[in-house]
Simulated assay, not measured.
Amino acid sequence: MGKIGIYGSSFDPITNVHLWTASTVAHRCKLDKVIFLPCSSKRKDKHLHTTDDHRWKMVQMAIQDNERYIADKYEMEQEAWNVYTEQTLTHFKEIYPDDEIYFIMGADLLVDIGAGKWGNTEALVRDNRFIVMARNGIDMLKEISHSPLLRNHDDGRTFHLLDKGLAMEISSSYIRDEFAVGGEPRYLLPESCYRYIKEHGIYR
C-alpha cells in the first residue's frame, strides 16, 4: 500500500513555493507520490489570469525532473460547477484503490471546511484524510476543536497537521503582479516556467 497526496491549486503560475511545499509534505508524511491538480477555469470562485493550456504546460515543465510528482487534468476537464473536492477524492480513490489518499491543503481551507463552506462537506470530512499546512495566524487545533463537523470526525488520523517550519508565502499573485509591471520574479518560479512566461507574454 502506498501513500498519495492530492495537491490542488490554480497554479497560475506554479511557483517554487508550490514545489518546495510538495517536497516538504512528501518527505515528512512519507508520500510515494504527489499529484498536482490544476483547478478548472470554469470555477465561479476563481478568476484565472491565463489559459488552461498555459497553466497545464507550466505545471508539466515544473515537475518533469521529479519522478515522485505527477500532473493530472481531472479537474480541468470537469464542468466545475458540478464537481466538489469530495467527488475528486472519490475519483482518485477509485483509481488507486490499494493506496491511502490524502488531500493537501493550507490551514485557511481547514477554516472554510469547518465552517461548512465547501460542497458535500459532511462526506468530505467523514470519508477522507487531510494533510494541513500551517498558515500564519491560524491555530489549527483550535479550528478543529471549535468546529462540530471537524472535531466529531477527527479520529486521530483524519488531520495530519504540518508546520513547514519556514514561512514561505510568495504567492502566484505576487509573481503575476511583478510580470505585469515589468518586475523581475525570476527566482520565485522554475526557470523553465519563467522563460515560458516571457516567451509567450503571459501576465503582462
Rank of each mutant, 00 (worst) to 15 (best):
S147V: 02
D65A: 02
R126V: 04
V132F: 01
A80R: 03
G183R: 03
S41C: 08
N66D: 11
G165R: 12
R55S: 08
R55H: 13
S145H: 09
G116T: 05
R186V: 01
M1F: 04
M76W: 08
K198Q: 15
Y102K: 07
A71H: 05
C193E: 13
R204F: 09
E169H: 06
I95D: 07
C39H: 09
M1T: 14
Q64K: 15
A167W: 10
L110N: 07
S40R: 07
S171Q: 10
L149G: 06
D163H: 06
L150H: 12
K3H: 05
E100M: 14
D12S: 09
T121S: 13
Y7I: 14
A107G: 08
D53P: 00
R126N: 05
L161W: 05
T21I: 15
W81F: 05
R186L: 01
T121F: 14
A134T: 11
G165Y: 13
A26W: 00
P38Q: 00
Q60T: 10
E184L: 04
V25K: 02
T15D: 00
K73R: 08
T85G: 01
E75F: 06
K42S: 11
Q87F: 09
I95M: 15
P97I: 13
I6P: 00
L189A: 07
D99G: 06
L188R: 04
C29T: 09
H47V: 15
K93S: 03
A107H: 06
Q64H: 11
N136S: 10
Q64R: 11
V83R: 09
